[in-house]
Nucleic acid binder design. Structure first.
Length: 431
RNA sequence: GGAGAGCUGGCCGAGUCGGUCGAAGGCGCUCGCCUGCUAAGCGAGUAAGGGGGUAAAGCCCCCUUCGAGGGUUCGAAUCCCUCGCUCUCCGCCA
């Protein structure tokens, strides 16, 4: 959420930010609602002040036994109250209008976020590793997985519907190995591990920005809870309505959770394999930082995500999202894209963002510092995948495949696979 | 699911025959004093959100908030109703 006062005082800055984002949020529409709201509040508070004053007088008159004068005042206050309740309804409506509008405004891009209309303008920052040259025709994971008996798309449809995945045998074990490996690496880097609920309430999802604007992307339960689309939601909201100590910052958290997404509006995209599915595993990182250090923390968060890919020896590149491609809550975002032979290109596997005070304002996440400043300030929140496990699994399968249809287990994962070094094709066809 | 107790400021915790209570006291914190150092001690200050005033930092005025919402009243942390959450006991259960 943007600061209403900032929008009021810097309309041109916000206008430019929205234009850069190709967002349709109307600054003028907001200013109009905001002005109306403040006028109504002024009117209401004037009446309330008079009522409070009169009530105090009544108290004194009653004590002094001046009943008649008190009764006259009471009658006056009754009248004031009628006017107050009439205006209150208007103020409430104006409050709701302003808040709703503010809740649908995306974050302001940081000045270091490059301008661009869409993803084709995202500049590449760096590459790591070299895509492997195969001396045989490499298979896509959606072919290789089923033939190895470690991914079963057809039965997943039977169990749920399309865009779900059933992992089996060494596929399930490899998936679990990846989760444990990622958590261990992040833990060694100082990220505190959590295991949060997979369901979240509306307030939580509003705090991180999924609600109210993106409800159609979420699975909702019959009693009003939502399946989390990412652990970012829970990790960030851990400190909702809290005041942190500056000396504790930055806080570095991580968690493994399943993630659930409706993928509304992406019909026809990435239809094959486990790249875009309704449920996937992810290890997520979240940081709480002071405004002074948050952009440095973003760099080290990207490095932490890169560390996983490097240890797995998977080629990748880092891009920075331009203004037109930036997510709703983010001021600056780096994407990590892993090399996928089946796509003959790089595919997003991690997204690391600094949301500055945008989520903190929604979720009331503050920090205080004795001596440095009075009161409390909004913290900055950051989040990043470290990494999307399903896509990592697909990348491992494709990049580590051998001519005989087997898969080598990356060295970093072997300790998590009981020392196993290769996943072999089954002796007889998988049934 | 049944019964009971509770939900107050950064934290703990007073506060019910409704008024001067945004709220005693304590802890913590800030500033100052004192003390070879430290600890202890002394004094003052210290909730959040919103609206307005001032050129502006400071500052000043006002409104709202004692789990949430509604009601009674001139006036509610205090009375009534509904809901949520926490705790204890019972039942059930991975």
């Amino acid at each position: 959420m943007l600061d209403a006062r900032f929008v009021r005082e810097n309309p041109d800055v916000v206008r430019k930010a929205m234009a850069d984002r190709c967002a349709s949020w109307s600054v003028d529409g907001f200013l109009e609602l905001d002005t109306e709201r403040r006028a109504l509040i002024g009117e209401l508070e004037g009446l309330q002040a008079r009522r409070n004053e009169a009530s105090k007088l009544i108290g004194g008159l009653m004590r002094d036994g001046k009943r008649d004068e008190a009764e006259a005042l009471k009658a006056e206050v009754r009248e004031i109250n009628e006017r107050i309740s009439a205006i209150e309804a208007h103020v409430e409506a104006a409050d709701t209008d302003v808040r709703n509008m503010l809740l649908t405004a995306p974050n302001l891009p940081d000045e270091s976020t490059p301008f661009g209309e869409d993803e084709t303008f995202n500049p590449e920052v760096r590459r790591w590793g070299t895509p492997r040259q195969f001396d045989f025709e490499p298979q896509a994971h959606w072919d290789l997985g089923p033939s190895l008996g470690i991914i079963d798309f057809e039965r997943a449809v039977k169990l749920a519907e399309s865009r779900f995945v059933l992992l089996g045998r060494d596929g399930a074990r490899l998936n679990r190995a990846l989760i444990n490996f990622m958590l261990d690496v992040h833990g060694a880097n100082g990220f505190v591990e959590w295991s949060p609920p997979a369901l979240a309430n509306a307030e939580t999802l509003t705090g991180t920005g999924q609600l109210p604007k993106f409800e159609e992307d979420l699975y909702q339960t019959t009693d009003g809870l939502y399946l989390i689309p990412t652990a970012e939601v829970q990790l960030t909201n851990i400190h909702r309505d809290e005041v942190l100590e500056a000396s504790d910052l930055p806080l570095r958290y991580c968690a493994y959770t399943p993630c659930f997404r409706e993928e509304a509006g992406s019909a026809g995209r990435d239809t094959r394999g486990m790249i875009r599915v309704h449920q996937f595993d992810k290890v997520e990182m979240v940081k709480f930082a002071s405004p002074e250090t948050s952009f440095d923390e973003l760099e080290t968060m990207v490095a932490a995500a890169e560390g996983i890919l490097q240890k797995l020896d998977l080629p990748y590149r880092v891009i920075i999202l331009c203004t037109g491609d930036l997510g709703f809550s983010a001021a600056k975002t780096y994407d990590l894209e892993v090399w996928l032979p089946s796509y003959d290109g790089y595919k997003e596997i991690s997204s690391c963002s600094n949301c500055t005070d945008f989520q903190a304002r929604r979720a009331a996440i503050k920090y205080r510092s004795t001596g440095e400043f009075k009161g409390s300030r909004l913290a900055h929140t950051l989040n990043g995948s470290g990494l999307a496990v399903g896509r990592t699994l697909a990348a491992v399968i494709e990049n580590y495949q051998n001519a005989d249809g087997s898969i080598s287990v990356p060295a970093a994962l072997q300790p998590y696979m009981g020392g196993q070094t290769v996943i072999e094709p089954p002796a007889k066809p998988v049934g």
